[in-house]
Design a protein around this nucleic acid. Structure first.
Lengths: 209, 209
DNA sequence: TATCTTTCGTACTAGGTGGTATATTAACCA
DNA sequence: TGGTTAATATACCACCTAGTACGAAAGATA
């Protein structure tokens, strides 16, 4: 146990609570739409406390990004475990999107993408961390397709399929952000993925030549 | 002609030039990444001159949005004229994307979407203008599919096809913004649109049930 | 009790933001 | 020439931003 008595005034600052609120705010309002002052006010912490914990704004953003990937993206990535069978991926994706947007107040879009769009505000270190993570995600897709390659159309490589899936997910989120209903957005996702020959889609096309 | 002599000091302010520079800057750097001061400096105009012309920041943004739709989006929309035959749409889209990103310094992404993402900064009037325009675009897609409905798969309505196309274009732009090559992004677009049975695509799928 | 150590928050800084008051300038007209 | 009109830019405003100096507070140690 780390039950040895610490000297000095006991710490009251709740890092986890602050990170949760900051992440939610940045995610919902956008990086540039949210200031340190507003975050301090919402999380009910003093500004020096926040700076003591995270150093500066970039430190806070780095911690927020880490918190986001751990609590949001990584659970999503588990859907692409190579053990997940071919025929269960799309229903799982649709289910994940539905539960994520239906019964809670999760903001729309991807925080990592929103952060990437504010590149000039970010340090090179954080920027490369974001890029590394998106690459990691991309490669998880590719790995999944590699292990499930047998049923891919012959003209489609796992690498392209990964990019294509990435694009379809972007499309779905973009539509949701635009106000399209979750059902319609999921239908777009399912339709788009149907070209990869994944089961669970209704749309069928015929060869063009 | 409006050649009647105006009284007072002749105007030097070049509205068109300023709008062109402001649009480019907002488009490239994002709404929140660009300040009035920076725009004035880049356009080499004084701040009062800019305020005299546009009233306030929201007025400038409104003018920028109009300039953007007129010079960028509407030419793109012409590709969806109902007279454009079915089999020429995709090559035109790909060609448009290529020429737009290859030989010039056009920023990536869509300014209208970037503006929409900064909703809290925008006046309700401008916000509804943006929404109206995106709706108009969506309906142009739908009209095109209505006039070219015959070859659409029976399970796909023109309304859904319009949303789907919107999503595929978002996907393409998202990939380009992420650093994916134009060729790969266009290939994603072509592949995605293949489910609509449009000619010009190589990928063919077989019915799943 | 007094000292030491650590965390706390008030109150401040410098700089940037959107926006403007005001004096000057430059053309017309009489 | 002098008066009228309108466009110009300097120099300013109040406010907000990220970031911090510093003294008070709260516990352990002696």
């Amino acid at each position: 146990m780390s039950e040895l008595k610490r000297r000095g005034r006991p710490k009251q600052f709740d890092r986890e609570h602050t990170l949760a609120i900051a992440t939610r705010l940045y995610w919902a309002e956008g990086l540039e739409g949210m200031s340190i002052n507003q975050i301090c006010e919402s999380a009910d912490v003093s500004k020096p406390s926040l700076y003591r914990e995270f150093g500066n704004e970039d430190g806070l953003l780095t911690a927020v990004f880490h918190y986001y990937t751990e609590t949001v993206t990584k659970p999503f990535l588990q859907l692409f475990d190579v053990d997940v069978p071919f025929e269960k991926l799309i229903p799982q994706l649709v289910h994940a999107i539905h539960t994520k947007h239906d019964n809670s107040e999760i903001p729309t879009g991807c925080l990592a993408i929103k952060m990437r769009n504010c590149a000039p505000k970010l340090s090179p270190e954080l920027l490369s961390r974001i890029d590394a993570f998106t690459l990691e995600l991309q490669q998880a897709f590719e790995t999944w397709f590699t292990f499930n390659q047998t049923k891919l159309p012959s003209t489609i490589t796992p690498n392209f399929a990964a990019k294509y899936l990435d694009g379809q997910l972007s499309a779905t989120m973009a539509l949701v952000c635009k106000g399209v209903s979750i059902d319609d957005a999921c239908q777009v996702l399912v339709t788009g993925l149907s070209v990869l020959n994944l089961p669970g889609t209704k749309v069928a096309t015929t060869p063009t030549n």
